[in-house]
Simulated scan of single mutants.
Amino acid sequence: MKRKVNLFVLAFVLSAFFSVTKAQVKPSMNYKNPVVEVGMPDPTVIKAADGYFYVYATESTRNVPIMKSKDLVQWTYCNTAFTNKTRPKFEPRGGIWAPDINYINNKYVLYYAMSVWGGEQTCGIGVATSDSPQGPFTDHGKLFRSNEIGVQNSIDPSFLQYKGKNYLVWGSFRGIYVIELTADGLSVKPKAKKKQIAGTAFEAAYVHKHGDYYYLFASIGSCCEGLKSTYHVGVGRSKKVWGPYKDKNGKSMMENGYLQVIGSNDHFVGNGHGSQIIRDDAGQDWLFYHGISKTAPEKGRILLLDQIKWDKDGWPYVEGGSPSYEFQKAPVIK
């Protein structure tokens, strides 16, 4: 009887030990691309006040799909930003493209492009807001159309705050431009003048500050030709936010110079239109972007994730120069 009691106590102690150890030492999780195997083109990401990350995308799923995650790897669908009744209407037959999510003045602010394919003069950029990252979003209409702002193919918005002021970066293969917005971010500041900061090789531009430099990430090539797509991600940098942005060899992005960051490989092609760079709890930088699987192109532009690293000279890169396809260490999210 005494022996049985001792064995019971020993089992209880060992059980408690392993329970505590498991709680204190969380095994590192791995992930493999794609992180979402349905169409999520042109992703944009934010960490919300509720502790979840939210990703939004061009409407392969009508009315702008929203997914959420605690760890940047495992995503669940939660809503659409709009409904058929609430969706923007300033381009009546247009699709909602390239959303850009931000948190401004205690509101979730979603910039978006609206266009029909080839409608380079009538397309434009609008804005919507919500109290919740899951929506519903209230549309505030267009900021401008191409033919109003004087920039052909005015799509692909990207919000930027600089020295306490709000700016919008935008453009697609007709130059990358920037203009100041009002304090609430919901309209162009009166009398603001646009400024061109990159040439005609680029779209989906996004400014990111790292160290002493501002980096202008952008996409180059064809996005939407299936396995023939040539999309890839490039970058230039400058010590001034409005440039001039230059590549490693000193060629200006106004002259279409850039350093390639993400290209194609035997597994994924058409890789581009990166999100905002997300920093994890270990200080590592991550980029979401879309790509096309060579083995399952019918799934469309699926969601990919890779770590952005920085070389000794401060230039960004991903390992191998193209999407990872074997298991990688996941972002560290506590």
Results as ranks from 00 to 15, higher is better:
139 D>I: 11
133 P>W: 05
138 T>D: 10
134 Q>H: 03
181 L>E: 00
141 G>W: 11
156 D>G: 07
177 Y>H: 15
182 T>Y: 10
167 Y>E: 01
124 G>W: 12
163 K>W: 05
164 G>Y: 11
161 Q>Y: 01
115 S>V: 08
134 Q>V: 06
118 G>W: 05
176 I>C: 07
183 A>E: 15
159 F>Y: 15
181 L>V: 03
158 S>N: 14
150 G>P: 10
146 S>F: 03
151 V>A: 02
120 E>N: 13
146 S>N: 11
141 G>K: 09
167 Y>G: 01
138 T>N: 12
135 G>S: 11
156 D>W: 15
178 V>N: 02
131 D>A: 15
107 K>P: 05
158 S>K: 11
154 S>K: 02
145 R>P: 00
110 L>R: 12
119 G>K: 07
137 F>M: 04
128 A>Q: 09
166 N>P: 13
172 S>F: 09
158 S>G: 12
122 T>Y: 12
162 Y>V: 07
120 E>K: 08
117 W>L: 01
152 Q>E: 15
106 N>F: 00
119 G>A: 12
155 I>F: 02
176 I>Q: 13
160 L>P: 15
114 M>Y: 04
162 Y>C: 03
179 I>W: 05
138 T>R: 11
172 S>Q: 09
158 S>T: 07
156 D>I: 12
168 L>K: 05
112 Y>K: 11
149 I>D: 06
173 F>A: 02
173 F>D: 06
107 K>G: 04
127 V>R: 11
110 L>Q: 09
111 Y>H: 07
152 Q>F: 02
149 I>F: 09
132 S>F: 07
144 F>D: 03
111 Y>I: 06
129 T>I: 14
135 G>E: 15
124 G>T: 05
181 L>H: 03
118 G>K: 08
169 V>R: 07
180 E>G: 01
137 F>Q: 07
